[in-house]
């Protein structure tokens, strides 16, 4: 996560990342269909989609290579959404009842 590294990814890297994204999506769909995994399906799927999220944000959106400032704003919004709306759902008993 170095600030100064200006070694930008090449189209080759982008194609590879797209390949990884495709594979993860395929695995996600498979996981959703395998009944044996039902008890742990939520954590697996959330982890996999978080991985996709990080790949797109970090490489396609260059957040990994850009000013730290941008990262802060984006993650501030993300943390706010999780905390505030998570808190709201908590008062409805939605996330704990599940």
């Amino acid at each position: 996560m170095s600030e100064t590294a200006h070694v930008h990814p090449t189209p080759r890297d982008y194609w590879q990342i797209a390949g990884v994204l495709f594979v993860i999506t395929a695995v996600e769909v498979a996981v959703a269909y395998i009944e044996a995994l039902d008890p742990v399906v939520a954590p697996i799927l959330l982890t996999l989609s978080a991985a996709k999220f990080v790949l797109v944000v970090g490489w396609f959106m260059h957040l990994k290579y850009d000013l730290k400032r941008y990262r802060r704003f984006f993650y501030l919004g993300l943390a706010g959404a999780v905390l505030l709306l998570g808190g709201t759902l908590f008062t409805f008993g939605v996330l704990i009842g599940h």
């Binding site: 704003f73 919004g77 993300l78 959404a81």
Partner: peptide
């Protein structure tokens, strides 16, 4: 702006 949009879709 995208930071703001996160809360929109979050809601």
């Amino acid at each position: 702006f995208l930071g703001s949009e996160v809360l929109f879709f979050g809601s």
